[in-house]
Design a protein around this nucleic acid. Structure first.
Lengths: 192, 192, 192, 192
DNA sequence: TATGAATGAGTCTTCATTCAT
DNA sequence: GATGAATGAAGACTCATTCAT
């Protein structure tokens, strides 16, 4: 009752969402170098003016797109760790979930694009760092912090290499690495 | 009191070198998004026209800069594996060399910029892939291929995360991961 | 004392018109070789950016200018054939109208510039061909197709030569040619 | 004996010729708009420097190319009128020779390119005018000046229209026009 | 408020021209 | 002389941004 939209188009939130999602998708597909108002507007199906109305300049628009990408990655993590929990949180569970993730090349490329964009953008590094820490935190129920960090590093490396090579890292490699990290004694000074 | 000459000496090789190095340095420092003829020319100390004389378009210039970066990374690898050999090729040697590498934030950022640029450039992915394979090959004298790949993935992940976090991955993490990968049984199916 | 406004009124139609007309006039005066965005913008009294907003590249701008010129030529034809009709459509009428046309050196030069531009532009040849056919068609009420074509060829030659010589072809020449074409027996095999 | 070329390449005359011919050919094929030192040099198979050595600027180079084209056209005329003479200088001879000429589309296009380039170049108009007068003069042995001029106008129109249409003017049209011009009484006031 | 026309800053690119080698 | 590297002037084109409608 409080809403009385004069026209169907009166949906600022929806507009903004559409723009942000279009920006995120474009960044995921071709990086930030070719991101322009015009391309975002066209891809989002909104008039050019909207992209400048909702974002005071192109940097903000890019940032919004990257943040959206960051959010999607977080959802990825949520899902991955939900699956890990379902599978019992075992080393094998970690390995399988990671390998499943790596087999989705499109997803891997989008995620990597996010990190790639962050490399040369100080503000974005913040987000990437948060993402890193989230991954570590989510692993803590299953392993100590050192191992959790190692697993995160491994995941990030596998993601990057899978993206660049255009095909998943050999699952055996991931499985070996994950399981050996789990199996390692904490104090590396001790022999086995 | 030598006045600077109106026109530079004729030196095609040197000119090209200077331009490529300037491009590589700029990419390493701020990525490819802000790479323009003007900035490269200014940074290389050559007139604008020279950048277009030696490279028929900006894409070629970018590519040349990235290839130069790729060469620098290869040199990094050479050095790292020379050090590993000197240290006996032990797991501890790998761990130490990687940790030393990660402690050079500037170097890590340059290398990561190369991979980041490759994410959205199909032709550059070729180079990145070659770099990946080189790393695996260099490890083969010390471990089997599965472990060599795992170590490469780990190194790449550590590089990316070190770059994004702005500080080296905890050396203990690297050490644990490296040593456990070395220690792992080969057939993961047997474990547990 | 009205200060000239910082920004022009919004008037897409008028803008486009002004630009096209400026382009047409410049082409008519100096051909297509020296047609640049800058010159058109200056001549049209619009900022440089407008010329690229309305035409996605210089070829389109040139084409638009040439098409405009083509339209002007069509109007010329309309007028000429209206005059011919008024004068009874006799050979003398044709001769007089053509001679009148040739006496307007400026007009002849503009028209010739259009054909000259078409010589090396396949797409423009289409237009020139249409113009040729229009002339033939307009003559058909008065003569058969062979003679109509001959008259068109004669007109085009007279236009070209008048343009290049800087003075009209001797009216007696045009008169003789026109009247003899009218007078000729249709089947040239019979003659002599 | 007086010549002792140090090297095979010491042939300034030949160089100049090659450049001029390349320029002429390029102009004949694509007009003067796209004529550049680089293109001429490449097409002539000479180094870039030669084109600036022999011609102090691009305008001179273009002019030299156009003059060469003019010379070629003169040769065309020579040949045509030699053929006309061989055929007896009759109206039918004129018609046949012109129709033969028009059937060589490539030649027609080159010639027309010359006239087209002259339209917007005052100096070139001189040449075109000379060419016009040459044609008239060559016809004088067979007809009076008025008819000679009419035939020239007809020829030029047929050339232009053939070029623009991409196919020869119907031979019947040319034949009719030529023969009727020959047949006409000089004083158009008289009835037939 | 929503839109896209208007504008200019800045980038890419091409070339004529100069001139050291 | 012959050559092509060096250079800057200028043209094509793209876009972020502003702001009238």
């Amino acid at each position: 009752m409080t809403e009385k939209p004069k026209r169907a188009k009166r949906d600022p939130e929806g507009r903004r969402r559409a723009i942000v999602e279009a920006a995120a998708e474009l960044i995921g597909r071709e990086g930030t170098r070719k991101l322009t108002h015009r391309r975002v507007a066209q891809h989002a199906g909104v008039p050019l003016g909207s992209t400048t109305q909702y974002f005071s300049n192109i940097d903000e628009l890019r940032r919004a797109g990257l943040e959206e990408l960051g959010r999607l990655i977080e959802q990825d993590y949520d899902e991955m760790f939900r699956d890990i929990a379902k599978l019992g949180g075992t080393p094998a569970a970690f390995a399988q979930v990671i390998n499943d993730y790596l087999s989705d090349q499109a997803q891997v490329e989008v995620d990597t694009a996010f990190y790639a964009a962050a490399v040369n953008d100080p503000q974005m590094r913040q987000l990437a760092r948060a993402s890193f820490e989230l991954s570590v935190r989510r692993s803590l129920p299953y392993v100590d912090e050192t191992r959790a960090t190692a697993l995160t590093v491994l995941l990030d490396g596998a993601m990057l290499d899978t993206c660049l090579r255009g095909e998943p890292i050999d699952p055996a490699v991931v499985t070996l690495a994950v399981e050996s990290i789990f199996a390692a004694k904490l104090d590396p000074g001790d022999a086995r």
